[in-house]
């Protein structure tokens, strides 16, 4: 198993009290594509970030088991985590406008990811970066390598992010809403690229999204999260025929081009689900 999460709890201690955000999530992931869907604030991103130990220091994390390829994340030191982060598990963030360093060239940022884990000279790293940019289908990779993040489009920025995170050949890729900041036409391209690279390299993929049809299309399995819990877990192909009322509710709220509705229904929530 690449990822094992058992009974994960995440909460924030503040002056006014303790605010739980993730309340007992259990997930498993092998070399497959797992999608996590759910509304904003359901704890999708927190779960993913906890796996990489990327949450702020004051966050409280508890779990019966939180492991990456058998390594216990809960007890791993910062030094051990650095051998996992980047090197064995890549992490793609939402918006390249904010997730790429604004004052460093794209080439140097990709090269840095490569060199940190693979060593070698700066020149070698830059050459590797240009090859990687080519692999994510950037035309004229040399020119892009020399430009700054604000000089490229969102789609291009996300390709750069993918190249950067794939540089050290990780076994797992976590993508935290990789397409929600992009135009609809670019979204499909980026997802196709991710899927291609993940299958080619035989990696595991954890795709976080709130786009249900997209996830059902690209993933093998889907976990539906609500209010810090996993409501149900099912095969992606069966998502559209899901039985859980929350998943059904989410599906119902989607506007359809084929069957237009006058008013979109409002999602009803049942406290019973959380028991």
């Amino acid at each position: 198993m690449l990822v094992e999460i058992q009974n994960l709890h995440i909460g924030f201690q503040s002056r006014t009290g303790f605010a739980p955000a993730v309340k007992g999530v259990s997930l498993k992931l092998g070399t497959e594509k797992l999608g996590i869907v759910g509304e904003s604030g359901s704890g999708k991103s927190l779960t993913a970030r906890a796996l990489m130990k990327l949450l702020p220091k004051q966050t409280r994390i508890e779990a019966d088991r939180l492991a990456f390829d058998g390594i216990d994340i809960m007890s791993a030191s910062e030094r051990e985590m650095r051998q996992i982060r980047g090197k064995r598990a890549g992490f793609i963030l939402q918006d390249p406008k904010y997730s790429l360093n604004p004052v460093k060239t794209i080439g140097s940022q990709v090269a840095e990811a490569w060199r940190t884990h693979k060593g070698g000279s700066k020149r070698q790293a830059l050459e590797a970066a240009i090859t990687l940019l080519e692999q994510v289908k950037i035309r004229d990779p040399k020119k892009v390598a020399g430009s700054y993040p604000h000089e490229v489009s969102g789609g291009m920025g996300q390709r750069v992010m993918i190249a950067m995170m794939l540089a050290p050949d990780p076994e797992l890729l976590i993508a935290d809403e990789p397409t929600s900041a992009l135009d609809a036409t670019v979204q499909a391209e980026i997802l196709r690229l991710i899927e291609e690279l993940v299958s080619e390299r035989g990696m595991g993929l954890l795709l976080i999204s709130h786009d249900l049809p997209l996830v059902s299309h690209f993933c093998d399995r889907v976990a539906v999260m609500y209010a810090g819990r996993v409501m149900e877990e099912l095969k992606a192909s069966e998502l559209l025929s899901a039985q859980h009322p929350y998943t059904r509710g989410l599906l119902n709220c989607m506007p359809s081009l084929i069957h237009p509705k006058e008013r979109l229904p409002v999602l009803t929530r049942d406290p019973e689900w959380l028991k």
Binding site: M52, L54, E78, R82, Q83, I84, R85, G86, K87, G90, F91, L93, Q94, D95, Y98, S99, L100, N101, P102, E112, A113, T116, H117, M161, M164, M165, P168
Partner: peptide, 15 residues
């Protein structure tokens, strides 16, 4: 607080 700091950490860089 910038997102690129998270990216840098996710790359496995030292503090």
């Amino acid at each position: 607080k910038g997102e690129y700091v998270i990216t840098a950490r996710a790359k496995g860089l030292s503090g």
